[in-house]
């Protein structure tokens, strides 16, 4: 005779297998499974005892007192920070535009962009040389490593986001 699994017994105890005649019949006939069921019942009884969770009397008053000393709302603080940040950025940009020579600035930015593009092209060309020099397999491996690294970084970012954001 095959005995019930631990999971089946626990699901039965949780009422998650309603009207399952197979389990009922087995429990009536099998002393071992009956005993296991009773052991689980004892565990559940222990788990349901609501002992040792008492907060100090006057807990609600302590929370109210703490609220009185806590800043009204963190969101208000962050909104204020946002507004101040925007004002600061606008002010700094205005000052910069007033004092800087726009033509020189534009020329500098264009030169910087051109240099960046040249650097990117050089990097891609070097990568191609390396991969063709080492053969197709190495190219595939490097590509796989790149993809895995991107996924690892995304995973890390998402986990961090989840951990931080859920903390209300």
């Amino acid at each position: 005779m095959r005995h019930l699994t631990d999971e089946q017994i626990q699901l039965y105890l949780d009422g998650e297998v309603p009207c399952d005649a197979g389990i009922e019949n087995h429990l009536q006939r099998c002393a071992i499974c009956q005993q296991r069921l009773q052991l689980y019942r004892a565990v559940c009884k222990g788990l349901e005892e609501d002992v040792g969770f008492e907060l100090a009397p006057g807990f609600a008053e302590s929370v109210m007192a703490r609220l009185a000393t806590t800043p009204e709302k963190e969101t208000q603080g962050s909104l204020l920070n946002l507004i101040l940040g925007i004002c600061g950025t606008v002010f700094t940009l205005s000052l910069a535009l007033y004092f800087l020579d726009i033509k020189t600035l534009t020329h500098g930015l264009v030169s910087f962009a051109a240099a960046s593009i040249r650097f990117a092209e050089l990097f891609v060309a070097s990568f191609k040389i390396v991969t063709t020099g080492l053969g197709d397999n190495v190219g595939t491996i490097l590509f796989t490593i790149l993809i895995l690294t991107v996924f690892a970084i995304l995973d890390r970012i998402l986990l961090r986001y989840r951990g931080g954001h859920l903390c209300l």
Binding site: D6, Q10, Q35, R36, L39, Y40, A42, V43, C44, L47
Partner: peptide, 21 residues
């Protein structure tokens, strides 16, 4: 399920069955 199974195993390790039941 695993938590409760561990607790059940711990109890049976320490106690006589008749004491638990």
């Amino acid at each position: 399920f695993r938590g409760r199974r561990l607790l059940k195993d711990r109890l049976t390790e320490k106690y006589r069955l008749e004491d638990i039941l």
